[in-house]
Design a protein around this nucleic acid. Structure first.
Lengths: 242, 242
DNA sequence: GAGTGGTCTAGACCACCCT
DNA sequence: GGGTGGTCTAGACCACTCT
């Protein structure tokens, strides 16, 4: 057994194989939607057995970096707009139907991050950010007013023409090679300010959901900070606990 | 290879093994905290190989029915009060500390379920339920007013003396052999009614989080319906998206 | 030292997909 | 028909735990 560059005294081989494959996904060697070499080809290349490669792939499938299709191969997960909405947009109607939002009143600005933006995004003081505000609609009803901050350095050129797509996360993957892996949302009740109430067509002081989200990719640093004020007439936020 | 009672033309062997082990957990053959037979012993008993038993156990560990301890054995997950709070109570302080709530003003009643209770709990019209209302505190501050409905048939004798423990789910497991597997929460903003405001020490109309939870065990029928009205001063609800 | 789970290998057969 | 992943086996060695 050749065992190219793998250290048998370090982490288990399948963990080392997982790390290596993940690095290749991150580097774009295996791009979104592309097929990986077969299990036997990878095993040969890495100098380990096919069963060990399979175990590494299993963990990556469980973490949704990869998708297997029997008879065809193993593919890098390709985050379509629908996938992204399915995973990171948790709003449903009373009938259990998914809410597919559209956007309105979008405004994009490039500016220096303020103190709270630097703190939440773990940026150096004085870093530049891209700030997006928009109203999101369910059908014709405005339901969410959201404010998004992105590190400008991570997303060069984003929103340069003053517009931004309705779903950002698939753009992150295909344009910038950044896969969104998870997000952490803090939810609180809040009363609508006069300004937010106007955007949402409500009376000031109406009860809202305030959702403060940090979004993460493969690295430790957050790639997005998003605060959503949600009206949710006839719609609810669904949280599954397991 | 004996292969006791397993059908090689049906589901994969590891799925059949998983189902059988799960049935034994449900039936109490393997009780909470108890050690299972070793992988080789199970393999012998079921007439399959140890690797296949391991794959079945792996899926059950992933679903948190089992816990492995190297050198000691495989154990049925034992839901202590702390575990239950960790999994199903999603409130944190601004510093990221877990909130461990206490209970006050608890009231337990046995009565006929109303229409919405029957619908949510999938009960026959006219079924009996156990209704619990209580206020939950973070330190000395009331933060949540909750109303719980349980099918009386599923939990005979529960709350007969008018009291109920602070954490219900470990009671479900140890007293009634029912393991809570997941819960589904619908979250909406709401304005405090005069009555709820009084329990929480607020002004009427204050913005609240309304959390409507259905809790499930191994069966399809829900085992609990819980509506929580949350004030959350200095506390937030944490939702992790993956 | 005996017994447990954790890792790794090598090889078999199957089901599925493409050309 | 040839290649892919899906399942299953049998056996090896290691790390950990208990007594």
């Amino acid at each position: 057994m050749k065992n190219n560059g793998f250290d048998r005294n370090a982490a288990p081989l399948y963990v080392q194989a997982r790390t290596l494959i993940l690095e290749r996904i991150e580097a774009g060697t295996y791009g979104p939607g592309k097929v990986l070499p077969s299990e036997f080809a990878l095993a040969d290349e890495l100098g380990i057995s096919q069963g060990t490669v399979r175990k590494a792939l299993d963990t990556l499938v469980a973490d949704r970096f990869l998708v297997r299709r029997q008879g065809r191969g193993t593919f890098v997960a390709d985050h379509t707009p629908a996938d992204v909405l399915f995973r990171f947009f948790k709003f449903y109607t009373r009938d259990g139907e998914r809410v597919l939002p559209s956007s309105r009143d979008t405004r994009v600005r490039h500016r220096i991050a303020n103190a709270s933006e630097c703190a939440r995004l773990q940026l150096e003081c004085g870093s530049r950010i891209i700030s997006i505000t928009r109203t999101r609609l369910h059908g014709r009803t405005p339901v969410i007013r959201e404010k998004i901050a992105l590190p400008a350095e991570t997303f060069p050129g984003l929103g340069a023409n003053g517009t931004v797509p309705n779903t950002l996360y698939d753009l992150f993957q295909h344009q910038y090679g950044i896969t969104v892996t998870h997000a952490s949302e803090r939810i609180e009740p809040a009363a609508a300010s006069a300004r937010d109430a106007a955007h949402l067509g409500l009376a000031a002081g109406s009860p809202l959901l305030r959702i403060d989200r940090l979004t993460f990719g493969l690295g430790k640093q957050p790639i997005e900070w998003r605060v959503s004020l949600c009206h949710l007439k006839g719609v609810y936020y669904l949280s599954e606990l397991r």
